[in-house]
Amino acid sequence: MHAARNLRLCTKDCVCLFICPTGATNTENGQIDFEKCLDGCRLCVDACSSGAIYLVSSTYPKPQPKEEGVVKAIFDLARSKAEQEDVARSISEASDDAALRQICSVFEQSSRIIGEDLWRESGYIIAQSEATRTLLKTMIKEHGNLEGFPLEEVEELLSRLS
C-alpha cells in the first residue's frame, strides 16, 4: 500500500516533505515516489491539511460474487450500449452535417461511459481479479493469432495482475 498525491487538491504546504521518513514525497514530477514510499506508513496522509494524499492498495479482496441473473441483464444492456455506439458512429461517418455529427459524438461518448459502468458492475470493477485474468486468457486464445494483437503486452499484463 503506497501513498499518492491528488495534485488537484494539493496546496503546496509541503508538510508531507517535512514528515516523510524516506523522502518519497519530494519528487520532480509532483507525484509521490511509489518505490520509496513505505508500505502503509501513512504519516503524510494524516499530516496533509488539504486532504490531498491518499493510500492506494496493492492488493484487493476478491470481488463480491454476483448473481447470474443480474450479470446477464447487465451484459444485455452493455451489448445494447455498444450497438448504439456503433449506430451513432456509423451515422456520423456517413454524414457531413457538423450538427448531426456532434449529436452522434455525444451519443457515442455517453453510451461508452454508461457501457463501461455496466461492465464495472458485472464483475470487472478492478483488473486484479480472476474474471479479468480469465478474460485476458480467452482473448489470447481467441484473438491472439489475429494481426496486430498485442500479445506481448497482454502476457505481461497477465503476469502483473497475478
Binding site: 446477464k72 452493455a78 457501457g115 470487472y124 479479468t132 482473448m139
Partner: peptide, 25 residues
Amino acid sequence: MDADVRQMTWTELEALCTNLEKACS
C-alpha cells in the same frame, strides 16, 4: 459468470478494455 469473449462484438470488447484501462489508471 464471465463475459463470453466469443459472443461479444468488437465494440463490446473495446468498452470492456477501456473500462479496465480506467480502473488501472
